[in-house]
Design a protein around this nucleic acid. Sequence first.
DNA 1: CTGAAAGCGCTAACAT
DNA 2: ATGTTAGCGCTTTCAG
Lengths: 335, 335
Amino acid sequence: MGYKFATIQDVAKVAGVSTATVSRTLSKPSVVAAGTREAVRRAVEETGYQVNTTAANLRLQRTGTVIVLLPNIANPFFSQILAGLSLELSDAKYGLLVTDTQTGPDPDARLAEYLRFRRADGILLFDGTLSSQALDIPGRPPLVMVCEWMERDVPTVRVNNEHGAEMAVDHLVSLGHRSIGHVTGPEGNVLSASRLAGYRTAMERRGLPVDERWVIDGDYSMDSGAAAGRRWLTMEKRPTALFLASDEMALGFLGVVQAAGVSVPRDVSIVGFDNIEISQHLTPALTTIRQPRTEIGIRAARKLLGLIHTGSLTGPSEVIEVEFIERRSAAPPPS
Amino acid sequence: MGYKFATIQDVAKVAGVSTATVSRTLSKPSVVAAGTREAVRRAVEETGYQVNTTAANLRLQRTGTVIVLLPNIANPFFSQILAGLSLELSDAKYGLLVTDTQTGPDPDARLAEYLRFRRADGILLFDGTLSSQALDIPGRPPLVMVCEWMERDVPTVRVNNEHGAEMAVDHLVSLGHRSIGHVTGPEGNVLSASRLAGYRTAMERRGLPVDERWVIDGDYSMDSGAAAGRRWLTMEKRPTALFLASDEMALGFLGVVQAAGVSVPRDVSIVGFDNIEISQHLTPALTTIRQPRTEIGIRAARKLLGLIHTGSLTGPSEVIEVEFIERRSAAPPPS
DNA sequence: CTGAAAGCGCTAACAT
DNA sequence: ATGTTAGCGCTTTCAG
């Protein structure tokens, strides 16, 4: 505190020019004479001048920051996406304001509140539980939904969940499985729904019946995966393979059935979704569907920057492809 | 874009008072008459006024944001700390500007660059590789080092690593182990050093010799844990137990030795450090040392807010206690 | 090519 | 208790 930063005035004085010239030299060097430019450059050096972003932003009627609304900051799934975002946004000189919708009031109120006292130039929304009308705020900045989506013309960056699910099931089928179960994500979630849809589509396409008892409710968490494992153990007619809608659930499942003396993949095959970091280190290493998280972050950031630039609130959506990763948790069914 | 936000002038006009009164009503309501206060309140409602933080910050000579410098945003270990930070800082109406030191130039340059064009009111530093002189920037805001620390009077919030290591080793000793190995964190890191020191202290205190071949280099990653596992498998005189400086390494270790047909904890006992989320779901569930991450975040945020408030750059450091968590990966040695 | 000057929206002396 | 006013530091017309 108490330290006085050099201002553009100081630079102007030292360089013997006006503040306008200093400002121009810094933002559009081409329009000032080479000699002046050089004098300003020296003065900047001498004074140690650093632009005051707050003042510039006030003048330019912008904030220089982008808000990221996450359902839960603590979820590691988001951290890598965040890395991608950060990369792209800091290149564009935007700050990343991270907050989560879990603490405090509901997402709608949260978004409104956040917009209230901290205007941002753009919003990246990872929370699918936000209601459609929460977006009808006059003067709201452009927004991109990431991973989630809603019934509304909101620009979205997401992953091809259906295709991922189909690849998972196809793999199991090609190994010879005919009774294939599915552990779902939380109900009412578009991601869960599309993974489930992909599962059904693939089964149908291969002419395989789906026994509804094989479709087990989950919520992406390890605990729900463990519960699914206990459920599977008590079934009288167990499916020989399962596609689980998240790696975390696969982990929970694996722990429970292995503890019960079941061998994976000898006795049961499993395929997860996400390719979280631990998956490759499990025993057996988990066969899964990779979501390119850093790329999701980068693409989302670019899309938002584009909207900010053009000042538009709507735009096309992007679907990013997923990748099937074969490891050791799926094998032919026991004969 | 194009949308015009209500300003304090608009509110003043509607309420029939001056802008100063509006401002006062909003920040120090007690000093304005009840009637006026009510009129302003109504005018705010009517106009939909929201304070422009940028303007307020410019006027108040502050930025309203805190920078968080992480070595690697994508590391899930930090995400929960981030959640704690976010909680505390958003209560205090501070924004959280997250960036990582891994992308781009070295941490020193990174810090300098960040301070240059985006002044913050405070810094939370999680990167121990920053050099001491990088902090000697005139006018630099207060800074708190989190988890890491350095030879310098910088306020720090960290965890009692020595004690955690000692508890881990003590537990193994009390189970009857006498040959106990250690897999270290990366070299030159204060955390690694203090966990190693705790290990040596505990061994010495119990009168147990440390065979230097039992001290295996690691770097916290699963891969290095797996390497340690392979190393352990080839030893002619294997230690019956290991304390690993991170849960991730314990995971890697576990995968490798289990794949080789070794049973944990029957054939070898292991204790990790961190209590990452998966640890409780492993088979066997991992005995470990818990770091209270949310609390670390909260305490760090509070300390920084305190410094910002008092305008001081130095202050006492805090050490947060860790907790021993007994699960199933450690048992008496094979007889 | 450069300078003068207005003004972004707000807060805090200072005056009443 | 309230109003007047200066000014935070910057960018950008508009003149010259």
